[in-house]
Amino acid sequence: MEDIAAHIMAKYNYWIYVVLMMIGFYAMIGKRNLVKKLLGMNIFQTSIILFFISTGAKKGGSIPILDKYAALQGAVDVNQVVNPLPHVLMLTAIVVGVSVTGVALAVMQRIYRKYGTLEEDEILLKIENE
């Protein structure tokens, strides 16, 4: 039993991301409003960004901005600097997420302009009645 508790304590960060991901996933597939679906997608994305960032964490590590002259002489301890690669990848993911959100909101505005609603079932009804 103590094994399981220690196991969970060492990896509790993943549990938080999985819960966040479940919230976002449920909003994406369970809700009928398009704006709520988009919000769910953003929560989902946040959980994945947090997950990637946390894989690069090191206990006691400092930010990946080095002292230039010390680094030129090779005086860098890799274990004291957090992994910069997930930060770069997630910077890309954030920018792509902003683009996706922008295009999705534009499409929603266009849908509202045509059908006057953002509820999925009402839109489907109106498409059938056309």
């Binding site: 999985v18 964490a57 990946p64 080095l66 910069p84």
Partner: peptide
């Protein structure tokens, strides 16, 4: 998640490969 590395482990797989080269050689 049972197979993932513990949080903050400097020796976890993501921290052992290419990022070591980045930290040591990028400057």
């Amino acid at each position: 998640t049972a197979d993932f590395a513990a949080w903050g482990d400097p020796q976890s797989p993501p921290n052992r490969n290419i990022s070591v080269h980045y930290v040591e050689q990028a400057v």
